[in-house]
Design a protein around this nucleic acid. Structure first.
Length: 438
RNA sequence: GGAGAGGUGGCCGAGUGGUUGAAGGCGCCUGUCUCGAAAACAGGUAGACGAGAGUCUCGUGGGUUCGAAUCCCACCCUCUCCGCCA
């Protein structure tokens, strides 16, 4: 969250950020309550100081008449202090509630506008290995459509003919949007998970296998709650199913003060993710593109504030390294303000090309949250000078498995209907080179 | 799920209504001593808000009281035993 101080001192900037995100936040209410709170706080603190002073005198009083006189005196102010304290508590909790609904500020390089204003900043060709930085970035609305004449099947057809993705049978047990992987499909996913975790580990990301159920507080910490409760599943025992491993992992160091020498901390976590998607029939949710449950490998970084922007670039590159090794075609978007998530100050989306479906699939989202989550989750560290500061958090997927799997199936499809196994994954599949129809 | 024990500062641990934000020890930092180190001795050593005075924090939230680490209630967490389970 933003500090009260930020909202108080940079009100216009905050208002502007909220508007550019095309959302709403109770800024005016916050300003109003804050104006009432400040003088009240001073008054309450002065009265408490009096009370504490009197308490010491009462404790030390030898003469019982004098002691009784002091007690009577305090008795007469106690109820007034009580009233004022109640009002202060009410204001504080109201303010805290409102502050949780204010989105983060964003970096000046974030393009303004809605989704179509997001810009393409990088594009990579899987076949040739060429990578091109797009400078200046081009809005996706002006980005030329890909002329991909490859006549290949979309992954949902391929998955069925190869017998590796089953939509029909899983519907019997779970309903729509919860497909199952079979045989080489399940094995390919497992290979991907292992390979990705191994790659991240090599680059210094310590592996974590987090709980998939978390408390409400954890979700408040990362910013999903209180605003986005309807996008998740609450369990009957008061926990919530995680929408991403970002939630448990970012909350790991909650209420701790890390030493400067501990930073940076890099984790990679494999977990299932659960999202209460509002589906409408159509191409955007076909196949495995949008599901109630999917697996994902997520990278989470805890950084010193000065390092977080450089860390964002590294994080993006750490994700892209995997796509380069898999020889997949991809592009990187810098999301526009209207498409940014609540907590993010800047987000890159990585999309891979799905030739069967003729569309780009979002397989990763890489964000810098600055101290926004750190304030909510109380993530702090001690600087070299001994000061205590909020650290910065970042995360990026590497990668969401269903869509990555879909892209691989479509990009690695051969003329005879089989699918080649990407080179780096073969050691994880006992050297297997192809997936043939079952 | 049942029965019991317990949650105090970086750690251990005292404190059961009043100059206690908290004794003592360990650890850590600084100084004296030393060629240097160790030992010894002396001093220092939690966080939040605030310009500051000051206020708040002894698992969390309520309550009693002029006053709560200390009394009462609820909840959370940890440990032991039983039951159940992968």
């Amino acid at each position: 969250m933003l500090s009260l101080q930020t909202i108080r001192e940079h009100t216009d900037e905050v208002r502007n950020a909220v508007n550019q995100r095309h959302t709403e936040a109770p800024i005016e209410q916050i300003i109003e309550l804050d104006a009432e709170r400040s003088p009240l706080l001073t008054e309450v603190e002065t009265m408490r100081a009096d009370r504490n002073r009197a308490g010491k005198l009462i404790g030390a009083a030898k003469d019982s008449a004098e002691r009784q006189r002091l007690i009577d005196e305090q008795r007469s102010v106690a109820s007034k202090l009580d009233d004022l304290e109640k009002r202060l508590t009410d204001l504080d909790s109201a303010l805290n509630k409102l502050l949780l609904e204010v989105p983060n500020l964003f970096h000046e390089d974030v393009p303004l506008g809605v989704e179509e204003n997001s810009t393409v900043v990088l594009i990579g060709n899987g076949a040739t290995g060429e990578e091109q930085r797009i400078d200046p970035p081009v809005p996706i609305s002006e980005w030329p459509a890909i002329e991909d004449t490859a006549s290949v099947k979309p992954h949902w057809d391929l998955g069925e003919t190869l017998g590796i993705i089953d939509f029909k049978r899983s519907a019997k047990l779970s309903g729509a949007h919860l497909p199952m992987l079979l045989g080489d499909g399940a094995r390919l996913q497992r290979a991907l998970i292992s390979w990705m975790l191994d790659q991240h580990r090599k680059r210094g990301y310590q592996e974590v296998y987090p709980p998939a159920m978390v408390t409400r507080d954890a979700l408040v910490g990362t910013g999903q709650l209180p605003k986005f409760a309807d996008t998740m599943f609450e369990t009957t025992n008061g926990r919530w199913l995680i929408p991403t491993a970002e939630v448990p992992v970012t909350n790991m160091y909650r209420d701790e003060i890390l030493e400067s020498s501990d930073l940076p901390i890099h984790h990679a976590a494999y977990s299932p993710c659960f999202r209460n998607e509002q589906f409408s029939a159509g191409s955007s949710s076909r196949g495995v593109k949008r599901l109630y449950q999917f697996d994902k490998v997520e990278m989470v970084r805890f950084e010193r504030p000065d390092d977080s922007w450089e860390a964002l670039d590294q994080l993006l590159d750490d994700a892209l390294k995997l796509l380069r090794e898999l020889k997949l075609s991809y592009r990187v978007l810098r999301l526009a303000t209207g498409d940014l998530t609540f907590a993010s100050a800047m987000t890159y989306d990585i999309e891979t090309w799905a030739p069967g479906d003729q569309e780009w699939l979002e397989v990763s989202s890489v964000s810098n949250f600055l101290d926004f989550q750190a304030r909510r989750a109380n993530l702090r560290f001690r600087t070299e000078d001994g000061d205590i500061e909020y650290l910065h958090t970042l995360n990026g997927s590497g990668f969401a498995l269903p869509r990555l799997l879909a892209t691989i199936l479509e990009q690695y499809q051969l003329n005879d209907g089989s699918v080649e196994v990407p080179l780096p994954l073969r050691p994880y599949l006992g050297g297997q080179e192809r997936i043939d129809p079952a």
